[in-house]
Amino acid sequence: MIGLVLKLLRDELSNYIVQNKSQGDSIIQSDVILHNIALMDNDGQTDLNNKVVITLVNTEEESTLKNGSNILRTPNGVKYVEPPVFLNLYILVSATLGQDLQDAYEFALERLSLVIQFFQAKKSFTVQNSPFSSISSDSNISEEVKEEIKLNVELYTLTFEQINHLWGSLGGKQVPSAMYKIRLISIKENSGISAPLVEELVNNQNVTNIN
Rank of each mutant, 00 (worst) to 15 (best):
G192A: 10
K123M: 12
L109Y: 05
M179K: 04
L166S: 04
Q117T: 07
Y80S: 13
T59L: 12
E12R: 15
K123T: 06
K173G: 01
T96L: 06
I37N: 04
D138C: 11
V5N: 03
G3V: 00
E110G: 04
V202Y: 01
L13Q: 05
I17M: 03
Y180S: 05
S30F: 01
L101W: 02
V78D: 00
V78M: 08
L114I: 08
N129W: 14
L201E: 00
L6P: 08
I91S: 08
S142P: 05
L8G: 15
G77W: 02
S22T: 08
E147T: 10
K146Y: 05
I185P: 01
E62N: 15
G98K: 08
L13P: 03
T64N: 13
S142Q: 09
L72A: 03
A178S: 08
D138T: 05
V18W: 03
Q23G: 06
N203M: 14
V81H: 07
L13R: 09
E60Q: 13
Y180H: 07
S124G: 13
G172Q: 07
L65W: 12
D103V: 15
I71N: 06
L101E: 11
K146C: 06
N209Q: 11
V207S: 04
E82N: 02
Q45V: 05
L112P: 07
L13S: 02
D11E: 08
D31V: 08
N140S: 10
L197M: 05
M179H: 10
F132K: 04
I193S: 03
I193L: 15
N190E: 07
E148V: 07
N49K: 15
F119N: 06
Y156R: 12
A178V: 12
L155F: 07
S177V: 06
V52M: 02
L48F: 13
Y16G: 01
L4Y: 13
V57F: 09
L8N: 14
M179D: 02
H165K: 06
L184P: 04
